[in-house]
Design a protein around this nucleic acid. Structure first.
Length: 623
RNA sequence: GCGCUCGUAGCUCAGCUGGAUAGAGCACCAGACUUCGAAUCUGGGGGUCGGGGGUUCGAAUCCCUCCGAGCGCGCCA
């Protein structure tokens, strides 16, 4: 118990803060970016020496952790990438660059290896700087400005408002939400959007189904729900609500009169349910965009879009060859309005008008994406289920055409396909019968296992790989269960910080920022153990990982990183069991304790940061 | 028949947009609790990256071609 020492740490932290009052830059946080700058500086110096041509292209130079840790802390391909332009062989060039790098204050070793890699080993001070960066930036560690405020629209879920969300929708919901979090953290201006398919035959079927439930609510015996309508019980409240609101007044009207009324009410109630279900997963959209509004709003945006495409020569009247493969029963060869999708990479041209004169779904979708471009989104991301995979090319084609007619400076579209989820319980498939209207809803799953397992497990897989979700396994409290393992890592770190008050009595318990501030002044140079260095290296990787995940639109990388970080922490903990001098809390050495607490603080900070991006709780303790 | 997504250890999966001797977990075998949470950790065996060509300094990654799986294939959304 030496408060005096803690005061000294605080004083030192203040001093460190005053030394650099500017906002942290990318290189301050991202040690790989910092070293890349050093490598570029070295090549510039060689250019000044006349060893390299001036103005050489440095864009392909990368600095990355080597696969083999024996090769050092990081490796760069600079010499191999530059060799061709430099007109020299990689290895001599590598030697020259390495020689320059050896003069750097953070570089302990620079060696040329293999075909021309430069392997760098950094001095421990470099990793200590990285840890200090975690402590001083706190929850902002890993945040970057690579998005530069670019407006990006992330559209996800967009399930039909004809029934409650089922378990298959979970994955897209969680993926889209985490991706949006990640992009916002990386400096993009993100809009979270849900496209409501409230036009077309399916919502009419919804209305007819709801109308039956309405008559049922009025006491009529409606018998079985006919084929083609929605049989689920979830429409009973809609019928009851209509009966309460409208009494018997709808019952004897012709369908043309009651259908729009019933349809709008049914859609509103379904969407309210859907939003509630999404909220149970902590998924909240900024914009709910109605398909119907494209057609029935003040302007017919679908008609306008088609007209604009027609003026540009992308729409024509013509005939299509009948589809190959599975024969279409009622195929009718007729002239129709077609979008010239083949000009933009699709396989066939696509119809825009149905035979009854209404727009196809695809026509609305073109108009919808044009609407996004008109709203100023330079980047669009659509998250779809695997069953819509066949639709990717035509929408990509549509966006290219839209970009051409709007002359938007940028209109990128990335379509992320999330594969299907197989629901299991203890290894056995969960049976559900869609025909009988019985399916496992999103709400069922969240109620059974909780939001955190759902969110984490849906992200603990690449989005385009199929996923088994086992209701029994995801709530196990064991290493088999990654959700638990990572959350336990955070809880264990918090437990250490709580217990540390035995040695460092005035360590702030609740305010993480104050604690981190104090700990940043600890004598971090005493962190010399290999396990401690491994943890610091892992922490140093985080900004680079976030950046790569954001660019690739792959939030699953965060989940895997967190698992690795938690694993490093658990390993170091257990090394303290085998060798007591490696424990985080050393009773008679408050200085060492402070330094190790700083490391723990850094770990829990990054675990909490990553979990927050995934939308998963970072618990203080496991109960 | 065509298109899309995949194929990596016995199983479930990573592999940082082309880097070095391909990595985790489970399972199997052998070990570590008078602890700051053993709900954890340490070590071991296990591979023709579906097959075959090509591109280059270098390929699990990019191209071609077979094999196999899932999804989709006018006027449904």
């Amino acid at each position: 118990m030496i408060p005096k020492f803690a005061r000294e740490c605080a004083a030192r932290a203040c001093e460190l803060r005053n030394r650099d009052t500017s906002l942290p830059t990318m290189s301050d946080q991202n040690i790989f970016a910092a070293v890349l700058d050093k490598v570029r500086a070295a090549t510039n110096a060689l250019a000044a020496d006349g060893m390299l041509p001036a103005g050489i292209d440095q864009s392909r130079i990368v600095v990355e952790p080597p696969r083999e840790s024996a090769h050092g802390d990081m490796a760069t391909n600079a010499a191999m990438v530059l060799a061709k332009d430099a007109g020299s062989k990689p290895r001599p060039l590598a030697e020259a660059i390495a020689a320059k790098l050896r003069g750097d204050e953070l570089v302990a070793k620079a060696e040329v290896a293999g075909p021309g890699f430069i392997n760098l080993t950094l001095k421990p001070a470099a990793w200590i700087d990285a840890l200090r960066a975690v402590l001083t930036t706190g929850a902002n560690y890993g945040r970057s400005d690579i998005g530069q405020g670019t407006a990006v629209d992330v559209e996800y879920v967009s399930a039909n408002p004809t029934g409650p969300l089922h378990v298959g929708h979970c994955r897209g919901a969680v993926f889209g939400d985490a991706l949006a979090n990640l992009l916002a953290f990386s400096g993009f201006e993100v809009t979270r959007e849900y496209y409501i398919n409230d036009a077309g035959a399916q919502v009419d079927a919804l209305a007819r189904s709801a109308f039956l439930r309405y008559r049922e609510a009025l006491g009529e015996d409606i018998g079985a729900i006919p084929e083609g309508l929605y049989p689920g019980d979830y429409l009973k409240p809609v019928g009851a609500e209509l009966a309460t609101r409208d009494g018997a007044s709808l019952k004897d009207k012709p369908e043309t009169e009651w259908l729009p009324l019933v349809r709008d009410r049914a859609i509103d109630m379904m969407m309210a349910d859907i939003r509630n279900d999404l909220r149970s997963l902590n998924v909240v959209h900024d914009v709910f965009f109605s398909e119907r509004s494209l057609i029935e709003g003040p302007r017919d945006q679908v008609g306008e879009t088609i007209a604009a495409l027609r003026r540009a020569g992308y729409v024509y009247e013509g005939r299509l060859a009948p589809p190959k493969g599975a024969p279409v029963e009622d195929w009718e060869d007729r002239e129709q309005t077609l979008f010239r999708a083949t000009d933009f990479g699709d396989d066939v041209d696509r119809p825009l008008m149905k035979s009854d004169g209404s727009y196809t779904y695809f026509a609305s979708d073109i108009a919808y994406h044009k609407n996004k471009v008109d709203r100023g989104f330079a980047s669009m991301i659509d998250v779809w289920g695997a069953d819509h995979g066949g639709y990717v090319k035509r929408v990509q084609a549509a966006v290219k055409a839209v970009r051409a007619v709007t002359q938007a400076p940028s209109a990128e579209l990335d379509i992320k396909i999330v594969q299907l989820v197989k629901l299991l319980r203890g290894g056995e498939p969960v049976k559900m019968s869609k025909r009988a209207g019985e399916f496992v809803t999103l709400r069922d799953v969240v109620d059974e296992v909780g939001k955190d397992p759902v969110r984490f497990m849906m992200l603990y897989r690449k989005n385009d790989a199929a996923l088994d979700f086992d209701l029994a396994r995801v709530i196990e409290q064991s290493r088999d269960n990654p959700v638990f393992y990572v959350q336990y890592g955070h809880a264990r770190g918090q437990s250490i910080l709580r217990n540390a008050r035995e040695v460092v009595a005035d360590l702030p318990s609740e305010q993480a920022a104050a604690r981190a501030f104090l700990l940043a002044g600890a004598p971090l140079e005493r962190l010399e153990d290999s396990g401690e260095l491994a943890l610091m290296r892992r922490l140093a990787l985080y900004p680079r990982l976030i950046e790569a995940a954001a660019i690739a639109h792959e939030p699953h990388r965060i989940a895997f990183y967190l698992y690795d970080l938690a694993s490093d922490l658990h390993a170091q903990w257990n090394r303290g069991n085998d060798a007591s001098y490696l424990r985080f809390i050393i009773q008679n050495d408050p200085q060492m304790t402070m330094a190790r607490l700083a490391l723990v603080e850094g770990v829990v900070t990054v675990l909490a940061s990553g979990l927050r991006l995934l939308g998963v709780e970072a618990p203080e303790e496991m109960r």
